[in-house]
Amino acid sequence: MIQLAEDSNVGGPGAADQGNGHSDTMAGRTIHVRVLRQDGPGGESYWERHAVPYEPNMNVISVLQRIAERARAEDGRQVAPVAWDCSCLEEVCGSCTMLVNGRTRMACSALVDRLLEEHPGEIELRPMSKFPVVRDLKVDRGRLFRALERVEAWVPVDGSYDHGPGPRISPEEQEDAYPLSTCMSCGCCLEACPQYTKIEVVQREGESAEEFERRRTAAYDRGFVGAHAISQAVLFNGHPTGRMIADERLQALTSAGGIQVCGNAQNCVAVCPKHIPLTRSIARAGRAATVWAIKRLFDR
């Protein structure tokens, strides 16, 4: 543990980390990390080993920070720092999703001590497999955000001018909606979903950025929307104003790549770092789609 410096101030050397049982036994030891790297889109991926001195209470982010600082592989070769996404480091921004020891999770809340318990000796880091790799552990999750557009995940307000408060909402409704609204678009549910498969569109020779984007969006739109988007559709279809375009959302959910692609493996809910009741959302969306489809059949 770090000793308290004489004139320490906040958060500096004086404010050391919360200790844990491992610190004594692990002190002076090295963590071995195996990273699946890829220099760019479409490139070959390769494994690289890194060694990082153990510190108490480390998470995968701090391991990657040490790797960036060392910029050397375990064999001493100088290598470029591993690229990865992160921002808040407290599991609310959804940036740092990756495969840690083979499972999708947030790197910030993946604590080294637990990982070593789970798999002694080594930590394995891989990029998400359902999204195109940009570089190393950084992937392009544009399709995930596109899905939010597909299901029109917003409240269709008239505008931002003052119209008084929003609709009255019971505490039960709020408690129902709030968990769904904590979805941070991390993509864990999609990564673990056996029905969600990778779509990687490569820009063609001579194709303009706009054309490429259009083609890519079209490809995304044929693919599965995913649990997160279904859950957002359910969230907004439950909101008194949001449900004014419920039919449009159900239309989206029942078109190609919609809710019917779900295979009920329920991995989404098992890996969701925010414990969002995704399968409840899927079932609710299923119910709404059933009713809507039957209604449409008879109202035609």
């Binding site: 083979g102 673990a192 498969t197 692609v261 295979g263 493996a265 991995n267 098992a270 890996v271």
Partner: peptide
Amino acid sequence: AIIAGGLPNVSSYPYVGNVRYTLQ
């Protein structure tokens, strides 16, 4: 057709639901 469109991953995510998905 559905089976062809999926990608079972029960070895990475050995949850009961996923095992059932694969068994199905």
